[in-house]
Structures are given as structure tokens and as C-alpha cells.
Design a protein around this nucleic acid. Structure first.
Length: 636
RNA sequence: GCUGCUAUAGCUCAGUAGGUAGAGCGUAUCCUUGGUAAGGAUAAGGUCACCGGUUCAAAUCCGGUUAGCAGCUCCA
């Protein structure tokens, strides 16, 4: 008998050799039906994996990230099998599960056509109907090499050769199809329900442009058709909300041929920006930050000292001034450090929290540019905090609180990831350990759940990343908190301690919005252009029914203008329906219709975005409502 | 940057076996004074992205450049 500890903490006994599926069945039929794979002592395995000794077991369904990945990965194998059936000459490369589905790369003489894509999808559905079992085979390296060489699957041979010495090499077979694969997989192809192939794209073998370009087929799959439909709907919805489209329609910004990747902000986009910045300044002031501003162009020596000249050159822009080499700043930290160095600091002054809305320029590949999300110049809502090592935990907690407050204000959910030391990095192990532990301690003290990203930290220190989830469930990395022991060292920063001696301060780099430009893009898509009143470029539009009502409408407008409400009068010679339609497409939160009735009673007829006509109220009462929306940052 | 695709009016798009362009929306003017998502008429507006080639003739065919889109790579 073996003892199996389940997710709920209970321990059950099973005969040795019982499979994961058998355990699932013993718990409930429903679970057995839903289970896609198991997780034994933290390792994801097939459902028919036999339990030979005591273990902790978790059953994975589509709702678990890992279960979902197994499902998609099995889908990719079905895709490959379908392609091999229809195009036997196709060579297999790799086919992993990804965020919203899976892909498989093939080496074929001709790119796939959309018609062929449909045929492949049909074939996949056939394979699913055939309900072919997935069989796991563990084989030796020579056997694996032999097998795939025979099949002339040279990409697979290359993969096998690159596997580490001690790797267990496994193969999965489903009927006549066989693929090199670590697994695990669902028990049989029939477990897959709704599959769909999404697109075809070129992709280089191993992502390297020097290698051959392969044909990549993207697909997705779900255990229920309703889930697939929902996914497809989300894609359509994302197109409708695309900030590039809405940015033009709402006249927020433009990008012109004269400046690829350098956005132009129009008056309405500037209102958004300024509101975000006002909010940012106020909240930072409240939390003990001061604001600084450092130059955009600084000399070569500085960038050599900071390490950017060596590590970041390809992304930087350069210029010459009076024979001297200068660079346009790609980051704000060196500037902030120079401000710190401008005078002596006592331990009594720390922590020093210096915010900077700094415009940075980075050379991004032309193919990477994307609306406001990926640009060549952007404003980081940066801050550098100089502190004593003993203040780290408390200070990080303060930053986490600030981030939480910001994201909640926009109705954005988030999750947190802690990134640890990467291979290429500076500094001693002790320092890294201590820095990483401080970040972890702060997260734990705040009881924030987090995921660990091994080896994904910055070269100068570990970091905490905040990933926002927007209204469509997409995630965006925005905020980041980075702990840095290297820059203070390189620039020989000091403070005078209690003992009268010089000591090295620690630095925290952090951004909340990340980039104001990108954040505007995210907000545009999150709200589908229907910004909350406090951000809306036009908050109220007043629409008189005929020109008899213009005078009264004007007094209403004036009243609001005096209170800094962003109000517009639509005095055009158009029917009320027409004016409403336009205000609606412009996503203006409040429309005020003014006719005889309102004029007589000193009232306005209010139409609220998303709700429609909500009736007439007195002007003063309406003004109070709007002001409350602005003050409370109400979202509707 | 690489691969593929695209570029016609402010916007969305049609068009031509190669013979110098068209719609809807928007804009302007006039008529209409209309109560919760498009009232009517008239007009203006384009070196068909840019440079070069083929041709009697190029917006149309070919090459290059630039920009955009999708993917790869990378990231705030």
C-alpha cells in the first residue's frame, strides 16, 4: 500500500502501482472525468502514471494552469498528426502550449494556405473522433536518435542531441504518429473537444533569424464549445477595443511617418496624460516623495560608469556636442544618482524618495513598434529611493501599498511575480540572497501571493513585477520594484551614519504606471475608450434642442466651466438624435439635453453613458453628481 | 532587424485586360427648429505613399525606399 496525500491535506491509502486516474476515480467520478493529468510531488505526470511509493498528489483539470497546458500540448500533437497525415513530407520542429492555445512549427516546401488550414482542422477533428490513446515510451538516447533519423525528422535529432546527459528521453505515440516529447499528455485524443486553428505565420527554427524559416500554425482548444466561443468573442472584442483604433477615433494621439515610434499627443490625449500625472503627483506627495527632473542628454562618461554603455548600447541614441560624445537617456537612474551626489547626506535624511516623470528614448526594432504599447520614447513614472539597508522591508511595503492603491483606482486586478538572480549579473551571492529575501519578506508581510520567476531579475538586482489584468482578462506588466546594490557601488554613493563614517546606501527603482504612454493604451483598451469621468477628455456635453435654448444652455455651460468641469456646448444646427449619436460614439460620460421643459425649470435632462436617459434634475444637483464622480474617481 | 502582406479624399473602402479616379461617412454652405443613436439639398476635397524603370501611355506592371499590419526576437 502507498499513502497518498491529497490537495485538501487528507491522506488515503492505495495499493502500490495504482494510477493517478484510479485515485481520481476513488475521489469522485466528476473529478475523474475532468482530470487531465496529475501532479506527483510537484511533477506533472500522465493519468496512467503508477504510484509506487508514498506521494503528494494533485489532480489537474483544465482550470489549472498546468492542466490547461497539458490539454493544449496534446492538441498540438493532434495538429502535428493531422499535418503528417495530409502532408507526409512535412518535418516536425516543436509544438508547445502557449498562453491562449498552442502552436506547432513545420518545415514544409510551400507555406500553408487558409484552405489547407481548414483541411488540417477537419483532420484533427477526425483524429479526436478516433479517440486514439497517447502512449508514453521511455527510450535510450541511441534508440531515440535512431528512431528519428529513420523518420528523417532532423529537427528532432537536433533536439535530442541538445538534451542534457542525464535527461530521460521519452516519446509519445498516438496510433501511427510519434513525437519526441517529455509529456505528459491527456490519456487519448478523444479527451479533446473544441479545437480551432487560428493562423499561420513564419517563425525561425529556434527563434534565430539565421536559421531556416518554418511555418507555424497557431491553434487553440477548450473542453467545451462555449469556452471556445467565449475565447473567439474576446478576440473580436479586443479588436474593437484596440487602442490604435480608438486612439484615432477619440482623437487622443497619432503616430506619423515623420516619427515612427514617437507618438504625438493631441489635446484630448493630453487631458488624459495630465490627469494621470496630477493623480500621480498628489499620491506621491502624500507618501513622502519629492519630485526631480533630470536632463535628457548626458555625456558618455556617465553612461560608461553606469554600465549602460556596455550593456545597453544597442538600444541607445547618441549625439555629439562640441566634439564630446553624448547619449539620450534610456533610463532615469543615472540622472537621479547625480542629484544624490550633488550633496552630502546624513542617515537622518534617508529614505529619500525622488520621483521623476522622465522622458526616455530607446531604440526598439522597427518590427516591434505597436501603437502606444511599444514606442521609442516614453515617460516613465519613475522613482528612486535611497535608503539604509535596514529600511528595505518597510520601504518595499510602502511601495506595494502605493501600487495597490493605484491599480484599484482603475479597477485593474493584478498578480505579482518575484524575479531572482539571472545568469548574467553583477554582485556577490550574499548580496543577492539578502536582496531577494528582503523582497520576499515584504511580500509575505503584506500577505501578497506571488509567483517566483527564477533567473528573471535585472542584472543589478532582483525585482517584483506587477502584472495587471484588464477587462478582457489580458495581462500587462506595468509596475516593477527593483532592488539595487550595484549602482550605489559604481557611483560610490554614501551617507554619513551615526558613527560619523561614510556608508553605502541601497537604491530602489520603481515605476507604477510603467510608461504613461503604455498605461494610456492599456486604459483605453480596458475601458474600451469609455473613460471614467475624472479621466474623460470631455466630461459633459450640453445639447440644446433648438437655437431658442442656446442662451440658457450657455449659462449651464458657463457654470460648469467655472468649476473646472470639462464641458462642451453642441450648438450645431442638428437634430437632437444626431447630437446624441455623436456624443455616444465619442463615449462622453454625460449628455445634457436642454429644451423648453428644462429651460422653464432651471433643469437639465441627463443622459448617462451606458444607462441612457435618466431623467431631468436641477442644474446644481447635476453639478454635484459630476463633481462627486470626479472626486471619487467613479467607474461606469 | 528578419519573413510575409498592405499603402487610392480627413476616415472606411470600391475601381481599372495599362488610356491621368468613385461611394459612404466627415467638412462647408443653404433649407429644415427637430425631445434621447444618422432630416434634406448643393459644394469643396486626391500628383492614387515616395523614388526610379518598362511603355506611345503607369494609380494599375517591375525594382527600390518609407511607413503600417501579422508573426519571430525583445521589452516599460
Amino acid at each position: 500500500m502507498v499513502q497518498v496525500r491529497l490537495k485538501d491535506g487528507s491522506v488515503r491509502e492505495y495499493p502500490a502501482g495504482s494510477t493517478v486516474l484510479e485515485v481520481a476515480k476513488s475521489i469522485s467520478q466528476g473529478l475523474a472525468r475532468e482530470a487531465l493529468a496529475g501532479k506527483v510531488n510537484g511533477k506533472v505526470v500522465d493519468l496512467n502514471y503508477p504510484l509506487q511509493e508514498d506521494a503528494a498528489l494533485e489532480l489537474l483539470t483544465f482550470n489549472d494552469e498546468e492542466g490547461c497546458a497539458v490539454y493544449r500540448h496534446s492538441s498540438a500533437h493532434v495538429l502535428a498528426q493531422a499535418v503528417k497525415r495530409l502532408f507526409p513530407e512535412a518535418k516536425l520542429a516543436i509544438g508547445p502550449a502557449i498562453q491562449d492555445g498552442y502552436y506547432y512549427d513545420f518545415d514544409v516546401p510551400q507555406p500553408f494556405t487558409p484552405v489547407q488550414l481548414e483541411q488540417i482542422e477537419e483532420e484533427m477533428n477526425k483524429i479526436i473522433k478516433e479517440d486514439i490513446p497517447f502512449k508514453r515510451l521511455e527510450i535510450s538516447r541511441p534508440e531515440a536518435l535512431g528512431r528519428f533519423q529513420n523518420q528523417e525528422e532532423l529537427y528532432k535529432v537536433e533536439l535530442i542531441n541538445d538534451l542534457p546527459e542525464d535527461a530521460v528521453i521519452s516519446c509519445y505515440q498516438q496510433g501511427d504518429f510519434e513525437d519526441l516529447c517529455a509529456g505528459p499528455h491527456v490519456p487519448s485524443t478523444g479527451r479533446l473537444k473544441s479545437i480551432k486553428l487560428m493562423s499561420i505565420a513564419g517563425a525561425y527554427w529556434r527563434g534565430n533569424e539565421k536559421n531556416k524559416m518554418l511555418q507555424r500554425i497557431y491553434g487553440t482548444s477548450f473542453p467545451k464549445k462555449a469556452l471556445l466561443d467565449e475565447h473567439l468573442f474576446r478576440i473580436e472584442e479586443a479588436k474593437r477595443r484596440d487602442h490604435r483604433k480608438l486612439g484615432a477615433e477619440l482623437d487622443l494621439y497619432s503616430i506619423q511617418e515623420e516619427g515612427p515610434g514617437f507618438p504625438f499627443f493631441h489635446p484630448k490625449g493630453m487631458i488624459l496624460r495630465n490627469e494621470l500625472e496630477n493623480f500621480w503627483r498628489l499620491e506621491h506627495k502624500r507618501r513622502g516623495y519629492q519630485e526631480i527632473r533630470t536632463p535628457v542628454i548626458l555625456n558618455r562618461g556617465l553612461w560608461e560608469q553606469s554600465g549602460h554603455w556596455d550593456h545597453y548600447k544597442e538600444n541607445m541614441y547618441f549625439t555629439k556636442i562640441d566634439e564630446g560624445d553624448y547619449a539620450v537617456k534610456p533610463m532615469n537612474c543615472p540622472g537621479s544618482i547625480l542629484v544624490y551626489r550633488a550633496k552630502m547626506h546624513s542617515y537622518r535624511d534617508l529614505p529619500l524618495r525622488w520621483g521623476e516623470l522622465g522622458l526616455v528614448h530607446r531604440h526598439e526594432l522597427s518590427g516591434a513598434l505597436h501603437g502606444l504599447m511599444r514606442v521609442r520614447c516614453f515617460t516613465q513614472d519613475d522613482a528612486h529611493i535611497f535608503l539604509l539597508p535596514s529600511q528595505i522591508k518597510e520601504e518595499i511595503i510602502g511601495v506595494i501599498d502605493l501600487f495597490d492603491y493605484f491599480y484599484n483606482t482603475f479597477g485593474l486586478q493584478y498578480h505579482v511575480e518575484l524575479s531572482t538572480r539571472p545568469e548574467k549579473s553583477m554582485g556577490s551571492d550574499e548580496i543577492w540572497e539578502m536582496a531577494t529575501n528582503s523582497l520576499r519578506d515584504a511580500l509575505e508581510a503584506k500577505q501578497v501571493k506571488f509567483k517566483i520567476n527564477e533567473g528573471d531579475g535585472a542584472f543589478y538586482g532582483p525585482k517584483i513585477d506587477f502584472h495587471l489584468t484588464d477587462s478582457l482578462g489580458r495581462t500587462w506588466q506595468c509596475g516593477t520594484i527593483q532592488l539595487d546594490f550595484q549602482m550605489p557601488e559604481k557611483f560610490e554613493l554614501t551617507y554619513v551614519g551615526e558613527d560619523g563614517q561614510k556608508h553605502r546606501p541601497v537604491m530602489i527603482h520603481r515605476v507604477v504606471f510603467g510608461s504613461i504612454e503604455r498605461f494610456i493604451g492599456i486604459l483605453t483598451e480596458h475601458f474600451a475608450g469609455a473613460f471614467p469621468v475624472w479621466l474623460a477628455p470631455i466630461q459633459v456635453r450640453v445639447m440644446p434642442i433648438t437655437d431658442k435654448h442656446h442662451e440658457y444652455a450657455n449659462t449651464v455651460v458657463k457654470k460648469m466651466q467655472e468649476l473646472d468641469i470639462r464641458v462642451e456646448l453642441d450648438a450645431r444646427n442638428e437634430k437632437i438624435n444626431y447630437k446624441i449619436r455623436e456624443a455616444q460614439t465619442q463615449k462622453i460620460p454625460y449628455m445634457l439635453v436642454i429644451g423648453d421643459r428644462e429651460m422653464e425649470q432651471g433643469a437639465v435632462a441627463v443622459r448617462q453613458r451606458g444607462k441612457g436617459d435618466i431623467g431631468a434634475i436641477q442644474v446644481e444637483e447635476f453639478i454635484n453628481t459630476v463633481q462627486a464622480d470626479i472626486k471619487n474617481k467613479t467607474i461606469f
